[in-house]
């Protein structure tokens, strides 16, 4: 019944419908760019590479047993995902391997490497705090982490979130304004019908209902449209990126599927509904005077 009615409205004034549809469609596309960007960064943040781990060196007088004890305590920190002791011998071997040296270049008796721990956190933003806490224990001579990398990443992450939310707010308001006016024009073009409804004893709720549904439907459809387009583009682009740069942790199409679908339909429907509500309030209030 409602769907029929909405379809009839669409047929009567396709441009108007299209205008509301497109405004939400394009804004949802912008939203999707941010969703994908956010998911990608999120993935980078959890990517436990060298750059995001903390390394702490014990003083020379600490032995293996004491080191294990410290590590045991560190394990209780909520920030810590993984922590291991790196013995002096392990450090030496790693160094040799890394620089492709032979065993006799740094003989074990002359091992310059101190005993250390290597800790990784769940999330990149926890790294600086974790390092700080480890420093505060006083067990270590020196605590290092991929400082600049982490901080740059975090700064970028925060920037994206804050500019993103400003842009998203703007986008939201834009589509709301468009849809409100679309529904208002739609109502004004049906002034006669509203008048008849009202004279037959229709309540305001009854009069308003089809318009709310119209806005809601436009929003949902536009959201679904944006979702489909995003899906197709992302699938294509990501596949290309993954084959071009296979070692980089790209988000997969499967991972953006649910978030974009949910956000697009929910936000589209919400904007459409809210816009119609505002428009119908304005029109009905004006009628009373």
């Amino acid at each position: 019944m409602f769907v029929c009615e909405a379809f009839r409205r669409f047929r009567r004034n396709p441009q108007l419908f299209l205008m509301g549809f497109l405004s939400i469609f394009f804004t949802q596309l912008i939203v999707n760019v941010f969703i994908v960007g956010y998911l990608e960064l999120d993935k980078l943040g959890t990517f436990s590479g060298e750059a995001f781990s903390v390394r702490a060196y014990f003083p020379d007088n600490v032995n293996m047993a004491q080191a294990e004890e410290v590590v045991e305590r560190l394990r209780e920190y909520p920030e810590i995902a993984e922590v291991i002791v790196v013995s002096r011998e392990q450090a030496r071997l790693r160094f040799l391997e890394y620089f492709d040296l032979r065993d006799e270049d740094i003989p074990p008796e002359e091992n310059p490497f101190p005993l250390s721990v290597e800790a990784a956190s769940h999330r990149v933003e926890d790294v600086p705090r974790l390092a700080e806490r480890m420093q505060e224990t006083g067990s270590f001579d020196e605590v290092l982490y991929g400082g600049r990398n982490v901080e740059l990443f975090l700064r970028f992450y925060q920037m994206l979130l804050s500019t993103g939310s400003v842009i998203l707010l703007g986008v939201f308001i834009f589509s709301l304004v468009v849809i409100t006016n679309v529904i208002r024009i739609s109502m004004q073009s049906r002034e006669h019908e509203i008048q008849v409804c009202s004279m037959m004893g229709a309540t305001e709720r009854f009069i308003r209902r089809p318009f709310l549904f119209e806005g809601f439907l436009q929003g949902i459809l536009a959201g679904l449209g944006a979702f489909c387009v995003t899906y197709v583009i992302a699938d294509f682009t990501l596949e290309f990126l993954i084959s071009a740069f296979p070692f980089f942790p790209w988000v997969e199409t499967g991972e953006i599927l649910v978030p974009t679908l949910v956000v697009n339909t929910a936000m589209g429907g919400f904007v459409g509904f809210l816009g119609s509500l505002i428009a119908s309030n304005a029109v009905l209030r004006r009628r009373k005077q």
């Binding site: 006669h192 019908e193 008048q195 008849v196 009202s198 004279m199 037959m200 004893g201």
Partner: peptide, 14 residues
């Protein structure tokens, strides 16, 4: 209005 039936001079059909 639901208790009133009205034939408008200008009809007002949809």
């Amino acid at each position: 209005r639901r208790n009133i039936g009205i034939v408008f001079q200008d009809l007002r059909l949809l």
